[in-house]
Design a protein around this nucleic acid. Structure first.
Lengths: 254, 254
DNA sequence: GAAATAGTGTCTCTGAGACATTATATG
DNA sequence: CATATAATGTCTCAGAGACACTATTTC
């Protein structure tokens, strides 16, 4: 029987680009709440790239799938347990990791932002939600990732990193992940990963538009979303206006 | 510095699901040419699964990317060199390969069917284009892969293998690849991977419809495709009807 | 009543399918 | 002429955006 022992083998890492929306700050003057797109990052606790930001992740262990490895490392390093991870791609360029021959299997998720907590024994430290913003000008779309301390960690123009303080090749994974995030929210149903069991149409709209970078009227947004929603007989508690019906995600794909 | 030596490492394989359309048989009676969707398969020359069909592929070597590994193995085992490979997914379930801990990085491509040739030193043998057919009935879509010798190699219902003579977990890769193939042809521009530099609108339609399992009139197909096409001043040689203008794929994405 | 959001209806535009019509090639 | 395919135009329908309008809640 053919032996696999004769071949040199790579290490395989699983890294996760986990996006979320923060609760938002209420502006003292206007009173409107501006929620922001965030990305979960950790700080390297070891060489190489000690002290730099990178995606949460770690090495695949025997007996687990890459999905399980990504989820385990995510929980260990950030305390985040909720998201449904989706495969984003494999990064295998020689030299991408100075420690040696290491592939990364990258994942994407969208989830609610809970306060991150790093397990004591983890080799990562200081998990944070970094701010993600995206602007369009003259046909160039610029993606910016900013650390909570104000440092610009990453700037990408049209998907290519131009400023990059992120460890390894994780800048490219973040850029690819952001593009895929928009596709999945706009064309599929990834936005529902942010929602609780019951929600109003308005609850959907702000997250949808912050992530996709689009804007439509509440009326048209409602019409677009209705086929994916199932009515309930429940209403949310009233604010200073008419109560809103609560919806549930419709089972079947649309 | 952190050492990666302490971790056990998996082997990593790169496997390719390469689809193509054959030149087609001309029916002696009706005179119409029926082209068929094909999938490139090899025969295992070694244990395990010796003699069974599987996707062309092999182990990743130091210094190459998974894309390069998939292309190298594809060329060695089948002589096929043309296709642009696209990442399909990573398959990492424990036990998926009886030889031990082996991940597969799977790729997808669509290409013209050239006669396959297996390099002498390869561990695969007998590369063939197997016939792929897909039928819809009662909400169940059935995918069937048939060996040139008539053996049914694989039957999937709604993406799940129900009959499976394919080695390893390649049945699942094929099922996932077929679904993705349809998506990429219908929603993006993968169909152009089948076309030469210059082609007519009619040249596009039959491949498109065989792969997606759809049918529209030539008039409407033309209108749908025109935004993606750039006219030329050239015409193809005449048959027993009006000559057709030759088109080129339009540069920018649409 | 004022203010704010919920929800409905109407108009328009665009893209896709159905199908009529004209154009051009061969035999 | 018949026949076949190429190419254009017309009608209709469905989905999305613009926007008018009504409904319901609190203050």
């Amino acid at each position: 029987m053919y032996s696999i022992e004769q071949f040199e083998r790579p290490s395989v890492a699983a890294d996760a680009a986990v996006f979320g929306l923060d609760a938002g700050q209420t502006e003292p003057r206007s009173g409107l709440r501006q929620r922001k797109l965030k990305l979960l990052l950790v700080r390297r606790g070891e060489e190489p790239f000690r002290g730099q930001r990178c995606l949460p992740g770690g090495f695949l262990r025997p007996g687990e799938t890459v999905e399980q490895a990504a989820m385990r490392e995510l929980t260990e390093e950030t305390g985040v347990t909720e998201p449904k991870l989706m495969q984003l791609g494999v990064y295998s360029a020689p030299g991408r990791d100075p420690r040696g021959w290491i592939l990364s299997c990258a994942f994407l998720a969208l989830t609610r932002t809970v306060t991150p907590q790093t397990a004591a024994h983890s080799d990562a430290a200081d998990a944070v939600w970094a701010e993600v913003s995206c602007t369009e000008a003259d046909g160039i779309s610029t993606l910016t990732v900013t650390d909570p301390d104000g440092t610009v960690l990453l700037q990408c123009e049209n998907g290519r990193p131009v400023t990059n303080r992120i460890a390894f090749d994780h800048a490219q994974i973040i850029a690819d992940g952001f593009r895929r995030l928009r596709e999945e929210v706009a064309a599929h149903d990834l936005i529902f990963d942010l929602m609780p069991e019951l929600f109003t149409v308005s609850d959907l709209q702000q997250p949808y538009e912050i992530i996709t970078g689009t804007h439509t009227s509440p009326q048209n947004f409602r019409k677009k979303m209705m086929p994916r929603l199932a009515e309930t007989e429940l209403y949310n508690e009233a604010a200073a206006h008419r109560t809103a019906k609560l919806y549930r995600r419709k089972d079947g794909k649309v």
